[in-house]
Design a protein around this nucleic acid. Structure first.
Length: 189
DNA sequence: TCGCTGATCATCT
DNA sequence: GATGATCAGCGAA
């Protein structure tokens, strides 16, 4: 499922205009069998969307300042989502650049999960949005499947790093570099 | 170019 | 009260 999202287009309409991106990098997360997943401990307030019907948006807040977006990809009752790690802006370039003021290069606009949500204007209120509703303000259209897809270990997690569930389009300039998870040292007494 | 650090809070124990 | 699916900025090489 996750590789099929590569090359897909995600479009977000807002009061300021529309921004569309082509996904170039994703990461898969399972449910009860995946210790790196938010859904590992079962249904909670935050992960309820992951157990819901597929095609919905799962947005969560992390590190006190970043939003990250997922697409639910498993039938209702089974947790499973795909983290959107990187993309290339194909529409609404100026709006995306305004939101990402400070980004030096165009390819940096959506290079990384938090940057991606910022460029698209996604945040907490968008959690649970239906991506398959033709009349919705956020829509996911799976277009041409990428002919070549690479996969490897996931980024930024400290457990189950051996699962090769990170997928990307080789050669895409927006693919983020691999970085191992960095555990934070325990706080002083 | 590479590697390390601080910022900052919703969610869960 | 601890933690984290991160990013930007800084200093060293």
């Amino acid at each position: 499922m996750a590789p099929e999202l590569l090359g897909a287009t995600l479009r977000v309409d807002s009061a300021d205009g529309a921004v569309a991106v082509r996904l170039t990098e994703v990461e898969a997360y399972e449910g009860l069998d995946d210790p790196a997943s938010h859904a590992f401990r079962g249904v909670t307030r935050r992960t309820a969307v992951m157990f819901g019907p597929p095609g919905h948006l799962y947005v969560y807040f992390s590190y006190g300042m970043h939003w990250c977006a997922n697409v639910v990809c498993q039938p209702e009752g089974i947790a499973g989502a795909v983290l959107l790690r990187a993309a290339e802006v194909t529409e609404g370039l100026e709006l995306a650049q305004r939101r990402r003021a400070g980004a030096r290069a165009e390819r940096d606009l959506a290079r990384g999960p938090a940057r991606l949500t910022k460029a698209l204007g996604l945040a907490g209120p968008d959690d649970g949005a239906d991506l398959l509703d033709p009349a919705g303000y956020v829509r996911l259209s799976v277009g041409d499947v990428e002919p070549e897809v690479h996969n490897s270990r996931r980024v930024g997690v400290n457990v189950a790093t051996d699962r090769p569930w990170r997928f990307w389009v080789p050669g895409a300039p927006s693919v983020s570099p691999y970085r191992a998870g960095r555990p934070r040292p325990s706080s002083p007494p």
